[in-house]
């Protein structure tokens, strides 16, 4: 499979990266005004494993698929309108990625990462209840759109390869794809009429579904459906427990000092592994440097080395291991 990437944002760039990481050939159309939209770190992350191709070297007949996020006007400017690309190329797949889609009442709207997160829905349940909803970091919506872009390209080309389908144009929006990430909330309202609100920054008391400070960093504590007494014993809070069943009705205000002291007594990986032995889903809260060096990612050889200004740096590889 050979794919042409025409990217001006993280969406098609991530689609191209994933397809390249999956060992298919990806050529990125080299156009300065598009390349200049990326920061240096983005270029390092996204350009791995791809070839650059100039417009005057381009022959669309060499490709199975095109993935683009630059929009109709920019495509037309380079004589690459969707109609022109597909004309006479029955098996060519073209995947268009955009914030809000190519059709629909919002198709002409001005947008950005935060407005897409807003209208896509995820944003409303992120952050604290007594503050405005909080944007997800980086270009999350565009990156998710890129995962869909890579899937659409690969699936549609497979459909052509196995004879089930011919070439096609697929229109995918970040708004539509982001909505899928909070379907549980939409279903909860549609089936039961109930909603989940953002919790306040400083709620009355605390409970064991909590992010707390361990000796060397933060630990996320989730022990779904666990008996509270058992969790309290595990946290070393047995003596403070006043009520046996429900963590939410414990006298947390009085227990808080003991809780903080208890969590701070062990490092986050110790809590993580000891909770796992109980069958509970605690997790270390990792920052980028923890992630690069933690034993799990080392064992899985997740990071790839790439050159950055003459030094080798480690960046995320494909998030799955493949054995053939």
């Amino acid at each position: 499979m050979r794919v042409l990437e025409i990217s001006g944002s993280s969406a098609a760039a991530n689609a191209g990266l994933l397809v390249a990481q999956l060992d298919f050939q990806v050529d990125r159309l080299a156009v300065d005004e598009l390349t200049n939209r990326f920061t240096e770190a983005q270029r390092v992350f996204f350009q791995r494993g791809k070839h650059e191709i100039e417009r005057d070297e381009l022959d669309l007949d060499d490709y199975d698929a095109v993935v683009e996020d630059v929009g109709i006007e920019m495509l037309a400017k380079h004589d690459l309108s969707i109609e022109e690309m597909r004309s006479g190329r029955e098996s060519l797949v073209v995947v268009s990625l955009s914030d809000l889609g190519l059709i629909g009442p919002y198709a002409g709207w001005a947008s950005s990462e935060i407005t897409v997160q807003a209208v896509g829905g995820v944003l409303h349940v992120s952050g604290y209840g007594d503050e405005p909803p909080l944007k997800l970091p980086g270009n999350t919506a565009a990156m998710i759109l890129g995962v869909h872009g890579a899937t659409a390209v690969t699936t549609a080309v497979f459909g052509v390869t196995n004879g089930a389908e011919s070439g096609i144009h697929i229109d995918i929006s970040a708004q539509d794809t982001l909505m899928q990430h909070w379907t549980r909330h939409i279903s909860q309202y549609a089936y039961a009429g109930t909603t989940t609100e953002r919790a306040p920054r400083n709620p009355e008391g605390i409970h064991f579904r909590h992010t707390a400070k361990a000796k060397d960093g933060w630990v996320y504590m989730l022990a779904l459906r666990a008996a509270w007494q058992k969790v309290a014993d595990f946290l070393g809070l047995s003596e403070q427990v006043a009520l046996e069943k429900d963590p939410n009705v414990q006298p947390w205000r009085e227990m808080e000092a003991a809780f903080v002291e208890s969590i701070a007594s062990k490092d986050k990986y110790t809590w993580f592994s000891e909770a796992a032995e109980q069958g509970w889903t605690f997790a270390p809260v990792e920052d980028p440097f923890d992630i690069v060096s933690n034993p799990q990612n080392q064992a899985r050889d997740f990071f790839e080395e790439t050159d950055y200004q003459g030094r080798m740096i480690r960046v995320p590889g494909l998030p799955y291991r493949i054995e053939r």
Binding site: P137, V315, P319, Y320, R324
Partner: peptide, 27 residues
Amino acid sequence: LGEDIDLSMTECITHLMGELMTEAVVS
């Protein structure tokens, strides 16, 4: 040929944060 795929949910999140991960190791 067939193949075996082993997918880590955590790595999918880290890949999603790839631009920021790269910014961190660069800076």
